[in-house]
Deep mutational scan, measured.
Amino acid sequence: MLDDRARMEAAKKEKVEQILAEFQLQEEDLKKVMRRMQKEMDRGLRLETHEEASVKMLPTYVRSTPEGSEVGDFLSLDLGGTNFRVMLVKVGEGEEGQWSVKTKHQMYSIPEDAMTGTAEMLFDYISECISDFLDKHQMKHKKLPLGFTFSFPVRHEDIDKGILLNWTKGFKASGAEGNNVVGLLRDAIKRRGDFEMDVVAMVNDTVATMISCYYEDHQCEVGMIVGTGCNACYMEEMQNVELVEGDEGRMCVNTEWGAFGDSGELDEFLLEYDRLVDESSANPGQQLYEKLIGGKYMGELVRLVLLRLVDENLLFHGEASEQLRTRGAFETRFVSQVESDTGDRKQIYNILSTLGLRPSTTDCDIVRRACESVSTRAAHMCSAGLAGVINRMRESRSEDVMRITVGVDGSVYKLHPSFKERFHASVRRLTPSCEITFIESEEGSGRGAALVSAVACKKACMLGQ
Rank of each mutant, 00 (worst) to 15 (best):
G446D: 15
L386Q: 03
L266D: 00
A6P: 08
I366H: 04
V277P: 01
S433E: 15
V305G: 01
M402N: 08
E112H: 13
I225F: 11
Q239E: 09
E319P: 02
L288Y: 15
P284A: 09
A370F: 03
S263I: 13
K169M: 10
R422F: 11
G264M: 02
L306C: 12
Y273E: 15
E196H: 03
M87S: 05
T206V: 12
Q286I: 14
T149W: 14
T342R: 07
A454L: 08
V253Q: 00
S360T: 08
F269G: 00
F123P: 01
K142H: 10
T116M: 12
W99Y: 06
S54N: 11
M121W: 08
R250T: 06
G444S: 08
R327Y: 12
E395D: 15
A460G: 13
S433Q: 13
C252D: 05
S131G: 13
H137I: 04
E440Q: 00
M107F: 13
E93G: 13
P417H: 15
L47P: 03
S64H: 11
N240I: 05
L77T: 07
T376Y: 03
E395A: 12
A320N: 15
E95K: 07
E290N: 07
V91D: 04
L352M: 09
D365M: 05
V412T: 15
D344N: 03
V389E: 00
L315A: 09
I439K: 11
E93C: 12
Q38K: 13
N231L: 02
Q287P: 00
S353M: 02
S340L: 12
A454V: 08
T361G: 11
A188S: 09
Y349H: 15
A454S: 14
L430E: 00
G407I: 03
D135C: 14
V389T: 05
G294R: 02
I159G: 15
P66A: 13
F74M: 14
E237G: 08
E51T: 13
N83A: 09
G227I: 03
E242L: 02
Q287W: 10
D113Q: 14
R392A: 02
L79Y: 15
V401D: 10
S281K: 00
I159Q: 06
G92Y: 05
C220V: 11
E112S: 08
G328Q: 09
Q286S: 14
K102R: 08
I126S: 00
R369C: 07
A449V: 09
R333V: 08
I348Q: 05
S340A: 07
L25F: 06
W99V: 11
L77R: 01
E279V: 09
L301K: 08
S396Y: 04
P111K: 15
A176Y: 05
R46K: 08
I404T: 12
C382W: 05
H141A: 10
A425R: 03
V241Q: 06
F171P: 11
E236T: 02
E128H: 02
S281P: 02
L146K: 12
E256A: 07
L75F: 03
E112M: 07
V277I: 11
G464L: 06
G444Q: 13
L292Y: 10
V62K: 00
H156Q: 09
T342V: 11
E52I: 07
K143D: 03
L271E: 03
D198V: 03
T103A: 12
R358W: 04
E177R: 06
E256K: 05
E300G: 02
Q347R: 06
S76K: 06
V302W: 00
Q287S: 11
I130A: 05
F423L: 10
G294H: 11
G299H: 00
H156N: 04
P359M: 15
Q287I: 12
V408D: 04
E67P: 02
K142S: 10
A425V: 06
D187E: 10
A379L: 10
T206Q: 07
I130Q: 02
Q138F: 03
F330P: 02
L79K: 07
H137V: 09
C252W: 06
S280K: 13
M462A: 15
H424Q: 05
K39C: 09
M121K: 05
K142N: 04
T65D: 02
M298H: 07
Q24C: 15
M41W: 00
R46Y: 03
G407C: 11
V406P: 00
N283L: 12
K296V: 12
I110C: 14
V241C: 10
Y349L: 09
F316P: 01
L47E: 13
D341R: 07
T60V: 06
D344R: 03
R422L: 14
S411V: 11
P111H: 13
F423V: 09
D365G: 09
M393G: 02
H380E: 13
C457Y: 09
S396L: 11
F260P: 00
H380C: 08
S426P: 02
P284W: 04
F260N: 01
E157Q: 14
D160I: 10
K458W: 05
Q24M: 05
S281Y: 01
K346Y: 07
S360L: 06
T49H: 10
T82S: 13
E435Q: 09
T362N: 02
I439M: 13
N83D: 04
R186F: 05
Y234N: 02
M87A: 07
A188C: 07
G175A: 07
L134I: 12
Q138G: 12
R85L: 12
N391L: 10
S336K: 03
L164A: 14
V367M: 03
Y214R: 09
V203E: 13
R191S: 02
P153C: 04
K172W: 11
R422Q: 06
D198T: 04
K346S: 10
L357C: 13
L146R: 05
G264Y: 08
D400Q: 09
A450E: 12
G147D: 02
Q347M: 15
G285H: 03
E248Q: 15
G285E: 13
S373P: 04
V406A: 05
G97K: 11
L185Q: 01
E339G: 04
W167Q: 12
E14K: 06
A21L: 06
S212P: 02
V253G: 01
A378Y: 00
S383H: 00
C434L: 03
V86P: 04
H218R: 09
R63D: 08
P284G: 09
K39N: 14
V86A: 08
K56W: 02
T405M: 04
L386M: 10
M57E: 00
Q38A: 08
I211V: 09
L463E: 14
D262G: 14
T376C: 11
A282T: 15
A119P: 08
S375W: 12
I130W: 04
Q38F: 05
P359S: 03
R377G: 00
I126A: 05
L292M: 15
V374Q: 01
L243R: 01
L271S: 07
E440L: 12
M115Y: 09
I163D: 15
E312H: 15
P359A: 10
L47F: 12
E421A: 11
V338P: 01
S76N: 11
D73K: 01
V401Y: 10
M34Q: 12
A11T: 15
G72P: 02
M202I: 03
I436D: 00
S396I: 12
R191I: 02
